[in-house]
Amino acid sequence: METTALAVAVVALLLALLGLWRGRPRKGEGVEALPEDVHGLRQEVAALRAEAKDALRHLAVVRYDAFGDMGGHLSWSLAVLDDGGHGVVLTSIHGRSEARTYAKSITGWSCEQQLSPEELEAIEHARP
């Protein structure tokens, strides 16, 4: 009885190995052998990846006290950048009686205008 069970198990193993061997791609059957709809999906994924490079998807906020006599971290700098480091840094400085907001254009992770330490920190935190 045990011999029969062992023989059946060996035959099943051999059949499974034969199925794996037959199912693997042969020479010349790599990506080219995929169905046409899979090629279409690969092209769509490549197009989506190319579009995503320009998306403003790297964000970072730095909150701080702009003036020593005020607390609560009401001032902030926000970096909004794409994969290439192009985008904008928005800064809002809050005082006792007013708030000012600034926008600075960022190109290649740097800016033509002088950046505050908090703006530089926001850009560094947004960098992937």
Rank of each mutant, 00 (worst) to 15 (best):
V61G: 03
D83K: 05
V62L: 02
E51F: 06
A55K: 11
F67H: 12
R127S: 01
F67I: 07
L15A: 15
E32H: 03
L48I: 07
S92W: 04
E118G: 02
G40M: 08
G108C: 04
L34M: 08
G19W: 14
R57F: 01
A12Y: 07
L59P: 06
W76R: 14
S110F: 08
Y102D: 04
D82F: 02
L13W: 09
C111G: 04
A16G: 11
Y64H: 05
T91P: 00
E29C: 01
A5T: 13
S75P: 07
A66V: 04
L48D: 10
V31W: 08
H86Y: 07
A79F: 04
T91M: 06
S116Y: 04
K53Q: 08
R42V: 07
E121Y: 03
A9E: 13
D69S: 13
V88E: 12
G108E: 02
L13G: 09
E98P: 06
A66K: 05
E51T: 07
S97M: 14
S97E: 15
H73S: 15
E2W: 10
S110Q: 15
L120I: 09
H58R: 08
V88D: 08
Y102K: 00
W76E: 11
H125Y: 11
T3C: 06
S116R: 08
I106D: 01
E44R: 14
Y64P: 02
L15R: 11
I123F: 02
V45L: 13
A16V: 12
D69Y: 15
A9G: 06
G40F: 08
A7P: 03
H94F: 12
V31K: 09
E112K: 13
A33R: 02
Y64E: 00
A33N: 04
W109H: 00
R42H: 10
L13H: 08
L34F: 09
G40P: 03
G84C: 04
V80G: 07
E112G: 10
L6W: 09
W109N: 00
C111Y: 04
A60S: 09
V38W: 10
H73L: 14
R26D: 09
T91W: 01
T91F: 02
L120Q: 15
W21A: 13
L90T: 10
E121M: 07
E119W: 00
E44F: 06
S105G: 09
E124M: 05
R96W: 11
V11R: 15
G28V: 02
G68T: 14
V61F: 11
L115Q: 05
E2Y: 10
E98T: 12
D83M: 02
H94M: 14
L20M: 14
